[in-house]
Computed example of a mutant assay.
Amino acid sequence: MKLLTIPKIEELPSQEQWNNYTISREGGSEISTIFLASIEQAFSSDFQFNHIAIYDNEELILGCPIYVSSNINLEIILPDNFLNRLIYYWRKLDRSFLLYKVMFIGTPLNDELDIFVKTQEPEKCFQLFTKELARLQKAYNADLIIFKNLIDQSLLKYLNRYGFFGVNSLPNSIINCDFSSYEYFLNSLDARKRRNINSKLRKAKNVGYDVQIKFGNDLDLDNLFILFENSYLKSKYKFERINIGLFRYLIEKLDREIIWINILENNYPVASSCCYIEKNSLVMKRVGIDYSSSIPFIYFILHYETIRYAIQNSLKSIKLGPTAYEAKKEMGASLQSTYLLIKHENLVFNKLLPIFY
């Protein structure tokens, strides 16, 4: 086996193999070479990038993107407990307290793990892989290595012997949309949730709003960017900052069509969801809100109309992603568990960290 580490995906000699593997996995186009080249350009000033490829003879058997980010809040990766809250309030006094430099296995724009493995000798492959991760961690002087959200823990059995440990991460929110109409969807909810949704919709309609569906580049990019920036600034979870480069990339490079579901007030967008279709699901990738809008419950209204769009277009579910769980459960969402794999560069701290989970 041989290993290759490259800073730019365009330098990969086996791009066709890489893409053949990635398109066969769910969400695979999010680590296609076109995707990776685009985010390298869009986020060149925000992150440091690398890509690992392992070959058995001439066959590509493992591939994954890596990015390094500075000043990551430790409490984001900790469970919501006393320690988490203590760190949060202490940082109000010392803004630099426990801000880490992190080497992520994955990409800035994907919430799930971005790695593919195809080998009959996984232990030998992962031994080579983890040795290279340790070298890169030292080269970047990174405090933590984090494998982004896993849907299952199949990789953990190969990685925990090299010092990685698995912890619960931010769950994904999923809404079942396999209904013949929006009314049937509402009727599937319990009476309290149904009354809650109908009440919010009624109050918003009394103020007045319109729904606009746009595709690809048929939109006012600069105005929508402001909405997404608003949501980033308001959110506690600040792993990656949305920038105008992201939108340029989405429109020009992503190998699938983007659907923009917008809420209009006086013909002007005041809320937007950036979505795409993955198999039979609508992935709600990013949300942008004008919090000064006079439309009440605008965050909820945007989600309700996105659900309506999914049902009208015969999609089976919506992937809402992490955060705002109580609000999303009120809309009928269920939670899908995900996990992080973590390794701290300090061996003593690495032994202590699992105690807090």
Rank of each mutant, 00 (worst) to 15 (best):
Q41G: 14
A142K: 07
D94N: 15
D178G: 05
E11Y: 10
I77P: 11
I244L: 11
H344L: 04
L340Q: 05
D218M: 10
Y182C: 03
R85V: 14
R308L: 01
S231G: 10
I355N: 12
L315K: 00
L159D: 02
T306V: 12
D114Y: 01
F179P: 00
K205E: 13
A53H: 12
E132I: 03
P296K: 14
Y325M: 03
L353H: 07
F215Y: 15
I175V: 15
Y299L: 07
V348W: 15
I146T: 10
L170A: 14
L144I: 10
N160L: 14
I61E: 05
G321C: 00
Y339F: 12
P13Y: 08
D220W: 03
L315R: 00
E326I: 14
S337E: 13
E30A: 06
I145N: 06
Y237E: 12
I263P: 02
F47V: 07
R25W: 12
K203V: 07
K351F: 10
I9R: 02
T33C: 12
A42R: 01
F97I: 02
V68S: 11
Y339D: 01
N110P: 09
L353V: 05
N168W: 13
N73M: 11
K343W: 02
N172T: 09
A139H: 14
S70W: 06
L136M: 08
L221R: 15
T107C: 02
K205H: 13
V283F: 00
K193Y: 01
K319Q: 02
N57D: 12
L156P: 00
Q336R: 10
N84E: 10
F43C: 10
Y268N: 11
Y21I: 01
T107Q: 01
P322L: 05
N176P: 01
F349S: 08
